[in-house]
Design a protein around this nucleic acid. Structure first.
Length: 270
DNA sequence: AAAAGCCCCTGGATGC
DNA sequence: TGCATCCAGGGGCTTT
């Protein structure tokens, strides 16, 4: 489910409510992708200072150390003073003085990992290889073009890899490439400077727009307040195989790239 | 260094 | 209704 917009929407939905809370209890369900990395009782009494985002990770700054939270494919967070009864896919629960934070993740590709600092070995392993934040000032057309020149694989897969620019997942990669008029199979190093600039703008535009719409709720995504997203309703190509392009009417195509679906318009994207 | 495949896991939709 | 197959928002790890 969660690409940058869904993670950011989740962050916005509880960051201000959990800030300053003291951790009172931690309980774990089934194992996730990685172990927590600290004895849960060690977290008791620590405070949650802030919630930041890096790529698709949420970073909970604690009075000592931080928690890295990843939602994987099917994870979602809830934060409320009163939550419904726990179900079998609720794998991490953090009870605090201001409410309970709960991770639900049926597929368990997600994770909650403790790190002593952002430079600790585990934090470096998870965050170290990440590319630039697409919505920050550091994401610049010139640098983006230069980075693409180094890569021979298909632009869609380069976007997904996340080592040049973070946060673009399977939905928004297809959407950004449509917006930029670029064929997903085009080798990244073949993209001209002006076209790279156009893709740069498209990535920013599609992600920012998706955040505004509360993300995409394809099956089960909701933010930490339980609210759904609506960006999927305005998707131009994602999930629209066989349907007419909203711009030119040509039938949208579905192909596989690296075992993942890619959608594009063969007329609008060259 | 980069690229390509594999795999982790559960559940919903579809087909016979 | 039962069972097999395919598919799904991610990404680390291993092998070329």
């Amino acid at each position: 489910m969660p690409e940058l917009p869904e993670v950011e929407v989740t962050r916005l939905s509880f960051a201000h409510r959990i800030a300053g809370a003291t951790i009172e209890a931690v309980s774990l369900g089934q194992s996730l992708r990685w172990p927590l990395g600290i004895r849960p009782e060690k977290l008791l009494g620590r405070r949650v200072l802030a919630v930041r985002r890096r790529g698709k990770y949420l970073l909970l700054d604690l009075s000592e150390g931080l928690l890295l939270i990843h939602l994987g494919m099917s994870g979602s967070l809830s934060f409320a003073s009163q939550l419904p009864e726990r179900t079998k896919h609720d794998h991490v629960e953090l009870r605090t003085s201001l409410g309970t934070l709960r991770l639900n993740d049926p597929r368990r590709f997600g994770a909650v990992v403790y790190a002593q600092s952002e430079t600790s070995p585990i934090a470096r392993k998870l965050l170290g290889g990440l590319g630039v934040e697409p919505l920050s000032e550091d994401f610049r057309p010139e640098n983006f073009h230069a980075a693409l020149q180094q890569r021979k694989s298909a632009i869609k897969q380069v976007l997904l890899a996340g080592d040049i620019v973070v946060g673009v997942g399977n939905i928004y990669a297809s959407e950004a490439l449509f917006l930029a008029g670029i064929r997903p199979t085009l080798a990244a190093h073949r993209i001209s400077r002006p076209r790279a600039a156009r893709l740069h703008a498209a990535v920013r535009e599609v992600l920012a727009r998706a955040v505004e719409k509360g993300g995409s709720t394809l099956r089960d995504f909701s933010n930490a307040q339980g609210e759904n997203g609506y960006f999927q309703l305005e998707a131009m190509v994602y999930g629209r195989a066989g349907l007419p392009c909203k711009v030119c009417g040509t039938t949208i195509r579905l192909i596989k790239q690296g075992q993942r679906s890619t959608f594009y318009c063969p007329a609008c994207q060259k």
